[in-house]
Design a protein around this nucleic acid. Structure first.
Length: 255
DNA sequence: ATGGTAGAGGATCTA
């Protein structure tokens, strides 16, 4: 089984790249973030043409998440239970005995801002919800754009980024809080190239200079992680014309 | 101290 995540920064612009990527990589489930599409505009027909079923939760202009599956998912959830939030950042569905939770964690803007507070509160509510989900679903994948670089080696310049949003201690503690629930960072189960990142700013030729951060993650429940055979970042799409600023990440799992 | 780019939508807001 293959499960992948990709922040596409507008599915309208990136649809041809997503269809190409699906054809080459054939994931069983692809999680998308920042679709920036209202539900009535979701390209279900084009995606069906590539052999995938769509589940989506979108809004105008911002945010928006989707799950593309070779089979249709069930038990769909479009928000953290009990959290009233007009921002579409969560989408969960069950594929066979596998629970997939796609998240687009708030960016946080800058440390100390209202959006930063919202991010930390949101992460607290996510943590609370996932305690129950882990009990309910032994095979659980939590993946998406976390907007957090957990460790120094996940940041091209940890001195420059020290204390800044995406790498501040409260955010990194919230990430560690998810690991403490029993999730495993699948990327670190394997030897990886040095300076592996998933996001590069569009500005200052950051990609060419590999000035990136690893902020897109695939966390697996312990039982599920024991079946994981690979986790890879695909830098290819970031080299496309009109690329997303994020690269896809994918895990492979035994049977 | 602040710019640089991209996307949505039609002036800014968000990232």
């Amino acid at each position: 089984m293959r499960i992948a995540t990709w922040n596409v920064n507008s599915l309208k612009v990136r649809l041809p790249q997503v269809l190409d990527w699906l054809a080459v990589n054939q994931p069983d489930v692809l999680c998308l973030q920042e679709t920036k599409l209202q539900d009535e505009n979701f390209p279900i027909t084009e995606i069906m043409g590539a052999g995938y079923q769509s589940i989506y939760a979108g809004q105008k202009s911002y945010n928006g998440v989707a799950l593309l599956g070779k089979k249709m998912g069930s038990e769909t959830a479009t928000a953290i239970p009990g959290l009233v939030d007009p921002q579409k950042r969560v989408l969960a569905a069950t594929y066979g005995d596998v629970r997939v939770i796609c998240i687009y964690v708030p960016n946080g803007e800058s440390v100390g801002s209202d959006k930063y507070r919202y991010k930390l509160d949101w992460l607290f509510d996510l943590n609370k919800w996932l305690r129950d989900e882990l009990i309910k679903y032994p095979k659980l994948a939590l993946l998406g754009d976390f907007n957090i670089a957990p460790e120094e080696r996940d940041v091209h310049d940890p001195i420059l980024w020290g204390g800044k949003v995406l790498f501040s201690y409260p955010e990194r503690e919230a990430f560690m809080g998810l690991l403490k629930l029993g999730f495993v960072d699948s990327f670190r189960l394997f030897n990886q190239p040095d300076k592996s990142y998933t996001w590069w700013d569009y500005r200052m030729m950051a990609f060419r200079r590999n000035m990136g951060l690893r902020i897109d993650h695939i966390l697996l429940s312990k039982e599920f992680a024991s079946t994981c055979t690979a986790c890879t970042i695909d830098k290819g799409p970031r080299k496309n014309e009109r690329p997303s600023d994020h690269s896809p990440v994918m895990v492979e799992l035994k049977a």
